[in-house]
Simulated scan of single mutants.
Amino acid sequence: MKTGFNEGCNRFCKNHSVMEDLELCEKYGFDYIDIQSECLERDLAEGKYTVDDLAAWFADPNHKLKMLSYNALVFFNMKQTQEEKDAVMARLDRIIGICNKLQCKMIVVVPSMDLPVHATIDEIREDAVAVLRDMVKKAEPHGIRLSLEFCGAPGMSINRFEDAYAIVQEVDSSMVGITLDQYHFHAMASSFDNLEKADGKKIFVWHLNGMENMPCGAAYNTDEKRLWPGLPGDCLDHKRYADTLKKIGFEGGVCTMEVFRPEYYALSNEENIRTAAEYTKTHVEKYWN
Rank of each mutant, 00 (worst) to 15 (best):
M188D: 00
V88T: 09
L73T: 11
D53C: 11
E23T: 14
Q169P: 01
V117P: 02
F161N: 01
E126D: 13
C9R: 04
G217P: 02
E140T: 08
D199M: 00
M156P: 00
N269P: 07
M156G: 00
Y28V: 10
D243E: 14
K105T: 11
C104W: 06
M67Q: 08
V254Y: 01
T3D: 00
M106N: 14
Q36K: 13
K27I: 11
D181E: 01
A153Q: 14
N289F: 14
S69H: 04
Q82D: 10
V205Q: 11
V88M: 08
A166D: 08
L54V: 14
D223C: 13
I121R: 08
F250C: 05
T222V: 15
V284R: 06
E285L: 14
A87T: 08
I96S: 02
N15C: 12
A59D: 12
P61Q: 09
V74W: 07
T275L: 15
D43H: 11
F76C: 04
E212K: 12
L44A: 06
E83T: 08
N272C: 12
S174V: 15
D53N: 14
P229L: 00
T222D: 14
W206K: 03
E170L: 09
D60S: 03
E278M: 15
V168Q: 03
A164V: 08
L24P: 07
V168L: 10
I98A: 01
E170V: 06
L92F: 02
A198P: 08
E123G: 04
L92R: 01
F30D: 00
K101R: 07
K85G: 02
G143F: 05
D193F: 07
G230I: 02
V108N: 12
S112P: 01
D223G: 13
K14H: 13
A266D: 14
N289C: 15
F260R: 12
